[in-house]
Design a protein around this nucleic acid. Structure first.
Lengths: 264, 264
DNA sequence: GGGTGTGAACTAGTTCACAGCT
DNA sequence: AGCTGTGAACTAGTTCACACCC
C-alpha cells in the first residue's frame, strides 16, 4: 500500500475530504467512466458501489463530502458525477509527469495507458544510463539525468515518478525536489525523506505479496484446497539466523511458539 | 492502494493482528534487513521507526501484537526480530507464484528482485499470446494459458499475480480460482469478484497518481513554487460532457462552485 | 416506492504518557 | 538512566437506520 503524508495534521476542520474518501474517488471514477462508455445515464448508489467494489453506505457517505450530487428516488447522473469527481481530483487539468529510471518497471509505466486517459501526460523519461539516452520508449526519447533540472523547470512539472533501484532513489528524490517537484510516486523500496510540503506516495510490489502471504498462511489447516501438497511445508527456522536471540518469554516452547492460529 | 478482503469480518477477537499492523510488518522487515546487512546488533524503537518511516509509538504498539520481543532499556535484537516478523508473515516458507500476462508490467514483475529475496519464487509465467510461448523472460520460458490449470496444480501454487489487460482479468481470475489459487494480486484496473475464502489485493498505478493530483491541486495558490507557469491552468469544464446535469444546488454559481480551497 | 443524505452508534487505528523492567 | 510495553484517551473511518425528498 501507499501512504500519504502531511495533510491537515490532526486539525478538526470541517470542509476537507477525508483521506480514505479521496483514495476511493479514483475507484468510483473508473466505474463511472465504464458506465459512461456504455451510455448509462444514471446509477443508484447500490449499483455503483457494486461496480466499484465497496458497500453502498460508504459510497453515499463519500459522495456526501463532495456535495449533494444525487437525486433522491433516482440515483446519480453518470456524466455529471464523472465531471464532479474529476474536478475534485484535479483531473480536469493536465499534469505533466516525469518518470525517472527507465528499467523494466519504468518502461512499463511509460507504456501504461491509464495515465494519459486521466490527464497525466508523460513529459519526459529520464535515466542515468548514457547508452539509453535518445532511445525511444513508448514513443518518447529517454533523456539523461543531467537534463533533469532543465526538463522539470521548462515543462513546469510538479509530479515525479521514481522507478530507479533503491540505492539511487533518495538522490534522485533530492534533485527532483530541488528542481521544484512537490509530489512523488515512489516505486523504489526505500523510505524517502522529503521536506515539508512535498507529498510522497509509495508502491512496493513485494509488500502486497507479503500481506497476501500472511493471510495465506493462516488459511493452511482450515480448508485444505485440492491437494494441499506444496502449499504448506513449514520450513525449519533458519538456525544460522537465530543464533543470538535473547532468552525471552521463558514460559513458551523453545522454537514453535505458534501465535494462536485461531482454529475457526 | 490495495485492499484486503474477508478478514475477521468485525468480530472482537483478542488474538489476531490488526490489518494496519500487518500492512506495516513488511516495512519493518525491510528496515531490519538493511540493519542486519550492516551487522547492527540492536535497534531502539526510535531508530527503527525512523528507518521505516513511522513513529515510534506506533511501531512499539505494532510489535506488542506479535509478543514481547524487545528488551527494556536496550531495544530490539535485529536478527531475532527479522526472524519473528518473517515467521509471522509466513516468509519462512517458500511461496510459488504464477504471473499471468507477460506484457511490460508482467515482465517487470518477473524481473523484480524483491520477490525472490522474500521467499516468493516465480514458478511460471503465463500469457495468452501463442507467439510468446517458449520465449524466456527473466530466465523463465513463458507458457501458454492452456497450461494454467496444470501448472498450478503440479506446482501447488496458491498465489497468483494478474498483469493482464483489464478485459481479460476476470476470466483469468476465475480460472486461477478454479485451479486452486486462494490469493490474488491484481494489477489490472478492474474489480475482481471472487468466492468467499479467496483474497484479492489490488495495485492500481493510476490511482496513486490521482491521489497525488488531488493534493497537488490544493497546493496551487498557497506556495507558488518556482514559476507556477504550467502548474495550474484550470481547463474549462468539458461542455459536451456536462449536457444533462440536473439543476442541483441552486444557490451556488452555475459552474465554478469551487469546493473551499482552504486558503491556509 | 425508491433511493439519497446524514446524524448517531460503532469499530479500527493512532497517539499519549507512564509504569515497570534491565 | 533508558527504553519497552501497554492501558487510556483520542481521532479517523465505517456501518446503521431512517428522515426526507423525488
Amino acid at each position: 500500500m501507499a501512504t500519504g503524508r502531511n495533510h491537515r495534521p490532526a486539525t478538526s476542520r470541517s470542509r476537507g475530504i477525508p483521506e480514505a474518501t479521496v483514495a476511493r474517488l479514483p475507484l468510483y471514477l473508473r466505474a463511472l467512466t465504464a458506465l459512461s462508455e456504455r451510455s448509462v445515464p444514471t446509477v443508484s448508489s447500490e449499483e455503483l458501489a457494486a461496480a466499484a467494489g465497496v458497500n453502498s453506505a460508504k459510497l453515499r457517505k463519500d459522495f456526501s463530502y463532495l456535495g449533494s450530487y444525487g437525486t433522491r428516488g433516482v440515483g446519480y447522473d453518470v456524466e455529471y458525477l464523472v465531471y464532479q469527481i474529476s474536478r475534485e481530483l484535479g483531473l480536469t487539468q493536465d499534469w505533466p509527469v516525469v518518470i525517472v529510471g527507465i528499467g523494466n518497471l519504468g518502461a512499463a509505466l511509460a507504456n501504461y495507458g491509464g495515465f494519459a486517459s486521466r490527464g497525466f501526460r508523460v513529459a519526459a523519461l529520464i535515466d542515468a544510463d548514457p547508452s539509453l539516452a535518445g532511445k525511444p520508449v513508448a514513443g518518447i526519447a529517454v533523456q539523461h539525468t543531467d537534463e533533469l533540472e532543465t526538463i522539470i523547470s521548462e515543462n513546469g512539472v510538479s509530479i515525479g515518478v521514481i522507478a530507479t533501484p533503491a540505492g539511487a532513489a533518495q538522490q534522485v528524490c533530492d534533485r527532483l525536489v530541488a528542481a521544484g517537484i512537490t509530489s512523488i510516486l515512489n516505486f523504489a523500496p526505500t523510505v524517502l525523506s522529503v521536506p515539508e510540503g512535498v507529498d510522497v506516495r509509495k508502491v512496493d510490489l513485494s509488500i502486497e505479496l507479503q500481506i497476501l502471504a500472511f493471510h495465506e498462511q493462516r488459511k493452511a489447516g482450515e480448508e485444505p484446497h485440492g491437494e494441499d501438497e506444496g502449499a504448506a511445508h513449514p520450513v525449519a527456522p533458519p538456525a544460522a539466523t537465530v543464533t543470538k536471540r535473547p532468552a525471552k518469554r521463558p514460559e513458551s516452547g523453545p522454537d514453535g511458539d505458534v501465535p494462536a492460529v485461531m482454529p475457526a
